[in-house]
Design a protein around this nucleic acid. Structure first.
Length: 293
DNA sequence: ATCCAGGCCCGAT
DNA sequence: ATCGGGCATGGA
């Protein structure tokens, strides 16, 4: 992985196991805006990024080497050896082979805890384009203006203090529907300062899960997403209707299996790499519409 | 139109 | 412990 500066842009070359589109478009993140093929605007970490991938080359437009090294390389998880992860998973079973080959460039982003928590509370009973719209609405309402790219204005995801000013009523006005009281509860807890990423350092996965479940509107699925996408708990295996159907099809001969049983199976089968397995399966299975009809 | 969406809450077994 | 109805909103 070589980093160099060219005019106002930073370029990383010889990237492996990474595909920008696959990584962004697989439902782990909601603040990306496609400009062209493999060319995206991304809002994260209170920053605006214009990023393009050309084969094994990443072009970070109008940013500094320092930001790329301190913010974006960790965000895109570029220092992690995904070759090792894939070899481990394929050693476990061959059923993952096609998914991993097809979605070889998926990486798990390291996103900020408050944004992931709020976003996945919103995500229940909604489709991804609509989730994106609602997260953007919250950002435009009380985030910070970050700049304009190709004529579009972008706003950061709000700080906890800003979120805490919003009431159930405000969330309803923003068309969050029945999630409004859940969002108010989460926002209040975030702002009180007893709920942040640091809250969970030192806690086991089980303790972390139980603490997250105390938040209204957070069940196991949302909690697992928060753990996987913002707390670095890479063994977490979120089970939604998609992954349930995919697992039933690939591992249980198409028979109905409860989410509980799938969770146990995943834990025993994939262990600490469950999260990666889930992402490969989810991205692949959703695109192939595995198990639908 | 009706149906349903990366679920969760709540009340009934 | 497990099951099913209801839930706001908007797109197919």
């Amino acid at each position: 992985m070589k980093i160099r500066k060219e005019k106002n842009n930073i370029i990383i070359e010889e990237i492996t196991d990474f595909d920008l589109e696959q990584t962004l478009e697989c439902g782990q993140c909601f603040r990306f805006y496609k400009q062209e093929e493999q060319d995206y605007v991304i809002v994260a970490a209170k920053r605006l990024l214009h990023l393009q991938q050309l084969d094994k080359k990443l072009i970070f437009y109008n940013t500094s080497k320092e930001d790329v090294e301190r913010i974006w390389i960790p965000y895109f998880d570029l220092k992690r050896d995904y070759g090792k992860i894939k070899r481990y998973l394929l050693q476990q079973d061959n059923i993952l082979k096609e998914a991993i080959e097809e979605k070889q460039g998926v990486r798990i982003l390291n996103q900020e805890f408050p944004e992931v928590l709020i976003s996945f509370i919103i995500s229940q009973n909604k489709q991804i384009p609509h989730i994106k719209q609602l997260v953007r609405r919250i950002s435009e309402r009380s985030g910070t203006y970050l700049g304009e790219i190709n004529g579009e204005k972008y706003y950061s995801f709000p700080e906890a203090e800003e979120l805490a000013k919003m009431t159930e009523r405000d969330f309803r006005e923003m068309k969050m529907g029945f999630r409004a009281p859940y969002l108010e509860d989460a926002a209040k807890k975030l702002a009180k300062g007893n709920l942040s990423a640091e809250t969970f350092s030192g806690l086991s996965d089980e303790e972390t899960m139980n603490k997250l479940l105390e938040i209204k509107g957070v069940g196991k699925k949302v909690a697992n997403c928060v753990m996987l996408f913002s707390l670095g708990r890479r063994g977490s295996f979120p089970i939604d209707v998609w992954i349930q159907r995919i697992m039933e099809t690939l591992y249980f001969e198409g028979n109905a299996v409860s989410k509980e049983k799938i969770a146990t199976f995943a834990r025993e089968h994939y262990g600490k790499y469950g999260g990666y397995a889930q992402q490969y399966l989810f991205c692949f299975g959703k695109e192939k519409k595995i198990g639908r009809n």
